[in-house]
Simulated scan of single mutants.
Amino acid sequence: MYIVSLTYTASLDRIDDALPAHRDYLNAQFAAGHFVAAGPKVPRDGGVILASNMERARLDAILAADPFAGLGLATYAVTEFKATRLAPNLNLPRAEAS
């Protein structure tokens, strides 16, 4: 799994203008099973995405498709971790075969 930390590099006005496209992107990634959780940081200087287990190159390609990335509105820091404990009813996709 991955923790993706976004840091905004533009004004909140520009972020808000791109937010509908970013939300559409998030919805598509949730529907595909790539993302598990997402939301803004507090204070609102970026966001956090919890991504499911996949090849890192695939995650990088998925993140590059985010409108925030394409418009140069955010930077992304990715931390990989092995989830050894999960909440009892949390169903996460397994790693894709390479």
Rank of each mutant, 00 (worst) to 15 (best):
A31R: 05
D45P: 00
A65P: 00
A83C: 10
I15N: 03
S52V: 12
L50K: 08
E96N: 13
L12Q: 14
A64P: 01
V4F: 05
L50D: 08
V4K: 03
P43L: 13
Y2T: 06
P88T: 12
Y2G: 01
D16W: 06
P20I: 00
I62R: 02
R56H: 09
A51W: 10
S5C: 08
S52G: 15
I15T: 05
L12A: 10
P20A: 03
A31N: 07
L86A: 09
T7R: 15
A87F: 11
A28D: 15
S52L: 06
V42Q: 13
R56Y: 08
A69Y: 09
A87I: 04
R94P: 09
H34Q: 12
A51R: 07
A64F: 04
P20Q: 02
E55L: 13
D13E: 10
D60R: 14
R23Y: 04
R14S: 07
A38Q: 02
N91Y: 04
A51N: 09
F30L: 09
I49L: 15
R94Q: 10
L90K: 12
D17Y: 08
L6I: 06
E96R: 13
I15F: 05
A65Q: 00
L19P: 03
P43R: 12
D60Y: 11
P93S: 09
G72M: 02
A87S: 15
V36P: 01
N53S: 15
A87E: 12
V36N: 01
P40K: 14
G47H: 07
A38Y: 04
D13S: 07
Y76V: 11
R44T: 14
P88S: 12
L90C: 15
A69Q: 11
H34E: 09
L63K: 05
A97K: 11
S98W: 06
L12P: 12
V78T: 12
D45R: 15
S52M: 07
G39T: 10
L50G: 12
A97C: 06
A61Q: 06
P93C: 02
A95V: 11
G46A: 13
F68T: 03
L63C: 07
G72T: 05
F81T: 03
Y2I: 06
I3S: 11
A97H: 08
G33P: 02
L86Q: 14
R58W: 08
